[in-house]
Simulated scan of single mutants.
Amino acid sequence: MHFFYLATLFLTIVTPLVKMALKALGIGVIAYVGINLVIDQAKDYLLANMGNAAPAIQMVLGLAKIDVAINIYFAAITTRLVLTGLNKLADRKAKLGNIGTLEA
């Protein structure tokens, strides 16, 4: 009979915590995949249009390493968006206070 009460207590406490963790991870993964998809499409579009330029212009763009600059720019955008999402998750944890801390 005691196992029933322990199981009920365990499910009452653990189930909301697991749901909250999966929800935070799910939103983060979906947002990252969506952001990455949009950034990749924009980068592919830009590089494809650079390939349609005249050969002389392509050579100048290659010497100037414009493709590397574009990759750095889009990596910075992705990093900024991911860090913003992580900061929001950290703020959410800070609002909980000392609920999640265990003292030894």
Rank of each mutant, 00 (worst) to 15 (best):
H2Y: 04
Q41L: 12
L96Y: 13
D44Y: 02
A75E: 06
L25K: 13
I27V: 07
V14K: 00
A21I: 04
D44A: 11
A53Y: 06
A31G: 02
I77G: 06
G26Q: 05
L61I: 03
N98V: 00
L89A: 15
G34C: 02
A69Y: 00
P16N: 02
I13A: 09
L81T: 12
K19G: 11
K19V: 14
L22A: 09
I99Q: 05
G62D: 03
V18W: 00
V33W: 10
L46K: 03
K93S: 13
L63N: 01
L46W: 00
P16Y: 01
N71F: 04
G97S: 09
I39L: 08
L47F: 07
I77C: 05
I39Q: 02
T84L: 15
K95F: 07
V29Q: 14
D44L: 12
L83R: 00
A54M: 13
P55H: 01
L6C: 04
I57H: 05
A54F: 01
M59E: 12
A75S: 08
Q58C: 05
V33S: 13
G34W: 01
L86P: 00
L25A: 15
I57Y: 08
G97R: 07
N98D: 12
N71P: 02
T79M: 10
L37F: 15
I66S: 01
V60W: 05
I77A: 10
L63M: 11
L81N: 05
D67P: 04
K95Q: 11
G51M: 11
I57R: 06
P55C: 01
M50E: 15
L11Y: 07
L22S: 06
N49Q: 13
T8D: 14
I13Q: 03
I72K: 05
A94Y: 02
G26S: 08
T8N: 11
L17W: 07
T84C: 10
T84S: 15
K19R: 13
I57T: 06
M1W: 09
I77W: 00
D67S: 03
A56E: 09
K93C: 10
A75L: 08
M1L: 14
K19F: 09
E103P: 09
T79D: 12
L22V: 10
K43T: 04
M1Q: 14
L37S: 15
R80D: 12
K65G: 08
T101N: 13
A64T: 05
L22G: 03
I72T: 11
L11G: 04
A24C: 10
A76V: 08
L25D: 09
A48D: 06
T79K: 02
T12Q: 10
R92S: 10
F10H: 03
N36L: 15
I66T: 00
A53R: 08
T15W: 03
M20L: 13
V68K: 04
A54H: 07
L22W: 01
G51N: 07
K43P: 00
I35M: 10
F10W: 07
V18L: 03
D40C: 11
L6M: 08
N49H: 14
Q58E: 09
A48K: 14
I27D: 12
A104Y: 07
L6V: 09
K88E: 14
A104D: 11
I66W: 06
L11N: 14
L83F: 10
T8I: 15
F4W: 14
A48W: 06
G28Y: 00
I30L: 11
